[in-house]
Design a protein around this nucleic acid. Structure first.
Lengths: 344, 344
DNA sequence: GTGAAAGCGCTAACAG
DNA sequence: CTGTTAGCGCTTTCAC
């Protein structure tokens, strides 16, 4: 009970408990008791009570109080799942901050923070619905449950959704169909006759469409479906294991389209373990621009919009939305580019 | 001026501007005008004013208002620089969240967010000094300027510092000396006669000590200093360039100790470009546990505490500090472990 | 259909 | 040395 399990303790609780005023408590909490010359005994009693009652300051109240009325504070959030790799997120963050900095001045300030939710449980995030946390957010890495929640909800602040298509929101999207098609093109042109697509078991909208388009494009040209190699997750380890099993079973494979970054890394390992050369025996194509694609051995050919380009659009939209009231829904497509490196 | 460049507009500004009450404005902002049956004309006028005046809701005020007095809300932050790589940070976040989840219940809730500051400018972070943002923070990736600020300041909430030694704070540290020594040991045992250390130009406390200890250990055994190869930054590209220059100049090198993860990746590229084999011609040792060390080709031998272990300590400390008042300074050392893989 | 007023928790100015 | 008070900006009864 010493930790305030029931009614949270406030400065007032403490003040009453000790028999002093709230001001005295506040002073002690701010370590200003010297300049206010509180009696050491009082200070000690207050400290004891604070500890004993398990006081936790209410930051919202402090913030409101401390707020400088001359400056307009914007609170921006990047919302993503714990489960997602943080890599795209860090770019989003940097880009948001860059744009925020450019708009910061006397009278206008921004805070940007990354907040994480448990995959599928976005709706439980405190302050989301009451709009009591953010003035604007970029949401990414959502699961279908989260998408359903978003689709059914009009959040009363600026929202930009990354990589998902939701009718009532501003969405920034890649073009998965085109990505899959281009990937197929690259592999087929590299004389791959038996290209496979490496995907995680749990597909997102995007990854599913990429794989779909890839298979369709191969079918169109080769007249048969390319194999799908299904990894348990999207980690390199999962990708390696899945492809290793495929190769180990002696199945045909002279080209791999890995629908996410991590899987490509895993594919490399499986291929090398099998004693095959990249791209001599098996060509590999990845998606997006992996931070380290240039440092793969051999460097990885990628197709997809650069994260840079996506993020740039998203952030621009966010600021535009915040400028107006009532962000209208819109879909912004960022076309893929192809970065040819040695792997295909 | 339409964006509220001067005195920020509040609900009250708008109310006065339109000639209605603040309640009406609030209702419209919350999209509750239907159920309150406001006159459509009024709603429109309010909306127009909101847009025209560039109203930005004050989230602190909303939060205070929305606050459920039955629940005790703890706001936790992970403070890091924009410039730092995010994967260590993401582990911190996950770990903090895991522990927070374990302590969440009716009456107690946590929010965890990552906040970034510009390297060297931690002190400018709004709300840090006024304690109006966090109930507790983990600070990491600081620059010397930031350390100086922290050393001179007693923040009135729980603070845990990662990887820096500050007399007045609770610090969780690796043991850079031991890391450097172990790295030297590994390379020397692998019969490297001319090991070099690859470091960024801007050294942190930790990286400097790692390099120092490495050089000293080599000197102790071989009787001469090992070369320092200085990269412009800590990116793979910088590491590759520096080592390429070193090898290109025909200087001796049959072992590399890369003091950060990214540099190791760059080293691989430079070595392969030079037509050398790892570890046959040049052995490589990295630090910590790189997310993808297993997927390097060949897999990278690492020495250092697992981030896991460091983070675990840090988070435990943070919660302990928040339990008490007045966190006392302390130093917690996390010993390194060695993960031998094929690279050395 | 709309307004007045209370109050979330906190701190600083002022008054003893 | 300490207490009283006003008010940060917002929303939600309650009253008209």
């Amino acid at each position: 009970m010493a930790r305030g399990e029931k009614r949270p303790v406030t400065v007032r609780t403490i003040a009453e408990h000790v028999g002093v005023s709230t001001a005295a408590v506040s002073t002690v909490l701010a370590n200003r008791h010297e300049e206010r010359r509180l009696a050491p005994a009082t200070v000690e009693k207050i400290r004891a009570a604070v500890r004993e009652l398990g006081y936790v300051p209410n930051v919202a109240a402090r913030r409101l109080r401390a707020h400088d009325p001359e400056v307009n504070h914007h609170e921006l959030g990047i919302l993503t799942t714990f489960e997602a790799p943080l890599f795209l997120v860090s770019r989003v963050l940097r880009q948001v901050q860059r744009m925020a900095d450019a708009r910061t001045g006397p009278g206008r300030r921004f805070s940007v923070s990354i907040d994480m939710f448990h995959a599928g449980r976005l709706r439980e995030m405190p302050g989301l619905l009451s709009a009591s946390r953010f003035n604007g957010v970029i949401v990414t890495n959502t699961l279908p449950e989260d998408d359903a929640f978003l689709a059914a909800t009009a959040l009363p602040y600026a929202v930009v959704v990354l990589g998902r298509r939701l009718p009532n929101h501003c969405c920034v999207l890649d073009t998965p169909g085109e990505i899959g098609r281009r990937a197929a093109e690259i592999l087929l042109k590299a004389d791959s006759r038996h290209p496979v697509v490496l995907t995680p078991a749990l597909l997102t909208q995007s990854t599913a469409e990429r794989a779909e388009a890839f298979v369709a494009a191969v079918r169109g040209q080769e007249g048969r479906d390319s194999a799908r190699v299904i990894a348990a997750g999207f980690t390199p380890a999962a990708g390696a294991e899945a492809l290793r099993a495929h190769l180990g079973a002696g199945l045909d494979c002279d080209g791999v389209f890995a629908v996410t970054d991590g899987l490509a890394l895993g594919a490399y390992q499986a291929i090398k373990d099998a004693g095959k050369g990249i791209p001599r025996d098996i060509a590999v194509v990845g998606v997006g621009d992996h931070e380290h694609a240039d440092f793969f051995d051999p460097p990885l050919t990628c197709v997809g919009p650069s994260n840079e380009a996506i993020v740039e659009q998203a952030v621009a939209q966010l600021f535009q939305l915040m400028g107006q009231r009532r962000g209208k829904a819109s879909e912004i497509f960022v076309p893929p580019s192809v970065v040819r490196r040695a792997s295909a």
